[in-house]
Amino acid sequence: MTPSLRRRHRLIWVVSAFLLPILFIAALWVIPEPAIDGDFNPPTARPYSEPIGQASTEAFSGVLRRDGNLPGWQLEVQLKEHLAAASIQLYLAENGQRRRLLGHLQAPGSYFFHFFPEAAPSTDVLELQLYDGIKRQALKELRLPIQGD
């Protein structure tokens, strides 16, 4: 390497050493949206024993369950049709606004998600939204009334 080339490399990496970590941290800072359980939901989960709410549309249905011996709630979502979207994210929503990311759906089928009641924006109704993470638009919505005790 020639000395001038070496200087150029040094300059590039000194600048990168500042810029990349700043962008890295800034990006994590402004995307405060951790998925609840996210992709790590055990797919073979068995349904909890006690249904406390369910609703259905043509596109997808949801059953909310709990189990006296286990903490939290379990949501089973059944995707019934193939949606023409590549990245389907399932959100807990409030008046059409996405609040918490529950996880991802792919091909039609059954998916289980576990979360704590505190994560739900409302105690009367669970508002679910399927969202296209690539095109950034809502795909389908479902309102699931929760039966109180």
Partner: peptide, 24 residues
């Protein structure tokens, strides 16, 4: 030497892609 630019772009591509979708 544009590979260094490509590297920066890729790091942000992966970071934003992963963080926007699932925050793994």
């Amino acid at each position: 030497m544009f590979v260094y630019l490509a590297y920066g772009l890729l790091v942000m591509h992966v970071l934003l892609g992963v963080a926007q979708a699932e925050h793994s």
